[in-house]
Design a protein around this nucleic acid. Structure first.
Lengths: 168, 168
DNA sequence: TTTCATGCAAATACTTTGCATAAGC
DNA sequence: GCTTATGCAAAGTATTTGCATGAAA
């Protein structure tokens, strides 16, 4: 609770500007609540639930309703600041999680299907090929999302033999 | 409604066997409902909702409850026959969709962020690199999931200028 | 001031659970 | 026969919506 201060980075202005641009594009307004939500989300690392955003806001002294968080998340997605996380990355069950992406180093995920371990990595060579694929279909690539799902070293050691499946 | 017949493929036995193996691994039983669900799902192309499975079952004369579909979906996932689709692939809002994967040619998706167009592709060279990444982290790769999100040719022509964002 | 955002409560939508009955093994 | 699966209804969550009030522009 002693690191209340906002971590200011060079992208700060850009991020806020993106958000504002989206909001104004919808004929919307720049409110204190939106600023607060943006700030809190910018500090988020990894995946988060809408409810966690609300809790963090509360810890910082803001009293912003969960409804408002819900209402703004789509705008943040549209602004490219967060994305909805893939279900296979989720614990299971309930709500959809989001991930803060803008201004973060882009990364993809290695996920252990057995223990749930998530490792972030980035591998430029793959990015290059992705660009090639997109071009061959005439797409202009904006972003991508890659998950490699397998068995992590520990689970392998653990003689982790789950369902064997004779994949084609 | 005239193509009621099951599209039998060489993998039929394997698919059913995988499903049965998972079921039996849980001390479960092989029921007519499970067979019917499996058959219907095997005919599914693209993404589908639990509710769509139930509707198709009904069209085929089965009267299997949505609850049962829900109860079996996790087993089908465990058997590697379907996977939960990524949220960013969904229309929006509501439920989680699934995708039939086993026995299907593996493919990834190119998704247009503007009109929602989804194109399937496969690109072996990327797969090779993914394997390399996994190995470098000691992971044994089981499957992967890649989405390339961008602007499709049509939307580009349409001078589709949505939110411009100065990605880092 | 005019319009949009917010908060609260109510409504929805999706998914899970409890229990009696039917069905595998 | 013993145990698990199913169907139905009820319960739970997650998310959205309606409306009065407060806040931007």
């Amino acid at each position: 609770m002693q690191q209340q201060r906002v971590r200011v980075t060079p992208q700060d202005d850009t991020v806020a500007a993106n958000f504002r641009a989206v909001i104004e594009g919808h004929g919307g307004r720049w409110t204190r609540e939106r600023l607060a939500i943006l700030q809190v989300i910018r500090e988020m690392r990894g995946h988060f639930l809408p409810e966690e955003v609300e809790q963090r806001l509360r810890k910082r002294g803001h009293r912003i309703s969960l409804t408002t968080v819900y209402r703004n998340l789509p705008l943040l997605v549209e602004a490219g600041i967060v994305r909805r996380a893939c279900v296979s990355e989720e614990k299971r069950g309930g709500g959809s999680s989001y991930e803060h992406i803008f201004g973060q180093e882009h990364h993809d995920h290695l996920i252990c299907a057995h223990c749930g371990l998530r490792v972030e990595f980035s591998y430029p060579a793959i990015d290059v090929l992705q660009e090639a694929v997109a071009q061959s279909y005439g797409f202009k690539l904006e972003r991508h999302h890659l998950e490699l799902i397998g068995c992590c070293p520990d689970c392998q050691k653990r003689a982790c033999r789950t369902r064997r499946r004779e994949a084609t």
